[in-house]
Amino acid sequence: MANTVTIERLTIDDITSRIRRAYGVHTTQTYRGAWMSLSNLAERVDLTFNEIKAGVLHLAQTDRQCVIAPESNQRTLTGLDRELAVRYGGQDNHLICWS
Rank of each mutant, 00 (worst) to 15 (best):
N3V: 10
N3P: 06
T6P: 01
R9M: 12
L10K: 15
L10C: 05
T11L: 03
T11A: 06
D14R: 11
T16K: 15
T16V: 15
I19T: 13
I19P: 04
I19L: 11
A22T: 04
Y23F: 08
Y23L: 06
T27F: 02
T28E: 08
T30F: 02
T30G: 01
T30V: 01
A34L: 03
W35M: 01
S37G: 12
L38Q: 03
L38P: 01
S39L: 04
S39R: 15
L41N: 03
A42W: 00
A42C: 02
A42K: 08
R44D: 12
V45C: 05
V45N: 07
D46F: 00
L47Q: 13
T48L: 06
F49W: 07
N50R: 09
N50C: 03
I52P: 06
I52H: 04
I52R: 05
K53N: 13
A54Y: 11
A54N: 15
A54R: 15
H58A: 11
Q65Y: 08
Q65K: 12
Q65D: 14
A69S: 14
Q74N: 06
R75S: 14
R75Q: 14
R75V: 10
L77D: 02
L77N: 04
G79M: 07
D81A: 02
E83M: 01
E83H: 07
A85L: 09
A85P: 05
Y88G: 00
H94M: 02
H94R: 01
L95C: 03
C97Q: 15
